[in-house]
Design a binder for these strands. Structure first.
Length: 454
DNA sequence: TAAATTTACCAACCCCGGTC
DNA sequence: GACCGGGGTTGGTAAATTTA
């Protein structure tokens, strides 16, 4: 339902009707013209017949209506919700009528194909020469207004999102990535890294500029710089580094807790001074600010911290990780394949890793994902060229019998027992995770070198 | 809204120990 | 000694969210 919002101070934007008459200035930015293009075709008219736009929307009612399609919509930012309401509600309704759910996360191969198809179709419809001109219009100043007008005239937004059950904007971002000639350039060699550092010292964080200079996407250079920018250690973690990491993760998790959660923690600590505090499972690996951790650890970048933490956490959640050695590791693989086969999904991104992890034992989901990757890379020939169901079928039909055979032989030989995987615990004791003295604390006991010294 | 930042996910590389 | 397989480490892209 649209709200009238009579008291609003903001001047009302030009109504859609006048757009169609061409009353609008022709010098608007590309994005705005895209909006108007689709607005003129799909714009919603409220029950009282009045046109509406973003600023009209009452957040509460937008949330309510979008919830039908996206249950956790209220967790998103207000502007995102308003825009989605304005731009996508109609599309969402059409998808729902066809029984198609709105998706997020990684794009499937089919969706990527659909995007390419949509772009090609739009190019032939409008006569625009290339995807680069269509999606990076800024790079062609002389033709910009011509291209923009064509997009507007032919409702670009509708075409690009055709057949893809996602918010329009996300499809557009994805299309830009697919067709960016500076994307997918592979690894950085020493020369690239040197150049990146040099250009950064000249231009600061102007990633777009630096990206153009080294022919990579701005995203790529920004991320790369975040990994090489500071002076960081490489190789094995020292004991003190690992301890700093564990302390840092603890601090960051505690800092992120709401005041109420902290109050509860305090009162529980008073009742039980032994320190047997527990922490909910998800907080141990979700929503941790790795840049904050990096700042505290000092000698490693955030991604190193993140990977190392997954490793430590897996060990501590599984009491040393020995559950996944020998026959137990084999059994875990067998279970993994069997569960994946039963799931019968078409695409890897439909998998609920949390759920799958629980079948293997008490491990964090990233651990299972890594296991699956290794399994397919090790067992399935040409897996890059196979679809997800083909990979699973191969694992089930060909690799599974071999693994079972191997397991039997090993059990026979070693007379070993398989441990039944422990059920996932929802809570962990603080001291089991943060104050446990296992052997996962790094190689040497001293610092390998001061930060910055290779 | 575009750009920047952060998080999620994916994959290659490297090294080491076991086996033939 | 060559050849693996596996684990750990590192580096890459994709997606989502926040900021300007």
């Amino acid at each position: 339902m649209w709200t009238a919002d009579q008291g609003r101070q903001k001047p009302r934007r030009v109504p859609a009707r006048s757009l169609q008459k061409g009353c609008r200035e022709s010098t608007r930015e590309e994005e705005s013209s895209l909006e108007s293009a689709s607005n003129s075709a799909t714009r919603y008219v409220s029950e009282d017949g009045r046109d509406s736009d973003e600023s009209d929307v009452d957040l509460g009612s937008a949330v309510k209506q979008l919830q039908e399609f996206i249950p956790d919509i209220q967790e998103r930012a207000a502007t995102t919700i308003r825009r989605m309401y304005r731009d996508d509600l109609g599309r969402f309704r059409e998808f729902k009528a066809q029984g198609v759910a709105i998706r997020f996360g990684k794009f499937s191969a089919k969706e990527n194909e659909q995007i390419e198809k949509n772009v090609q179709e739009f190019l032939s419809l409008t006569g625009i020469e290339s995807a680069d001109k269509l999606l990076y219009t800024d790079r062609y100043p002389e033709e910009k207004s011509l291209i923009t007008n064509l997009k507007r005239k032919h409702a670009f937004r509708l075409h690009i999102g055709k057949g893809i059950a996602r918010p329009w904007k996300l499809v557009y971002y994805r299309a830009k990535k697919i067709f960016d000639v500076n994307n997918y350039k592979g690894r950085y060699n020493e020369e690239d890294t040197k150049k990146l550092k040099a250009y950064h010292s000249l231009h600061g964080n102007d990633w777009k500029k630096i990206g153009a200079m080294v022919a990579r996407s701005s995203l790529s250079v920004a991320l790369k710089f975040s990994q090489i920018g500071g002076h960081r250690n490489h190789g094995a973690w020292s004991k003190t580094e690992t301890q700093r990491l564990i302390k840092a993760v603890e601090d960051v998790i505690l800092k992120k807790m709401s005041p109420q959660e902290l109050r509860e923690l305090d009162s529980r600590l008073q009742e039980d001074p032994e320190g047997r505090l527990s922490i909910v499972r998800e907080k141990l690996y979700k929503g941790i600010s790795w840049v904050e951790v990096e700042a505290k650890v000092e000698t490693r970048n955030w991604m190193q911290c993140k990977s190392k933490w997954t490793e430590i956490l897996t060990k501590r959640m599984t009491h040393g990780g020995f559950v996944y050695r020998g026959v137990n590791a084999l059994q875990a693989k067998i279970t993994l394949i069997e569960r994946l086969y039963e799931l019968n999904v078409n695409d890897a991104n439909e998998i609920d890793w949390e759920d799958l992890a629980s079948a293997i034992g008490d491990v964090p989901p990233p651990f299972v994902q890594a296991k699956f990757y290794k399994l397919k890379a090790a067992c399935v020939p040409f897996w890059q060229k196979k679809t997800f169901p083909e990979i699973i079928d191969y694992l089930y039909e060909t690799s599974l019998p071999l693994l079972k055979e191997k397991l039997e032989k090993k059990m026979e030989k070693n007379k070993s027992q398989i441990q039944t995987p422990s059920a996932p615990k929802q809570d962990f004791l603080f001291r089991d995770i943060f104050y446990c003295d296992d052997d996962s604390d790094g190689e040497g006991s001293e610092e390998p070198s001061a930060p910055g010294v290779p």
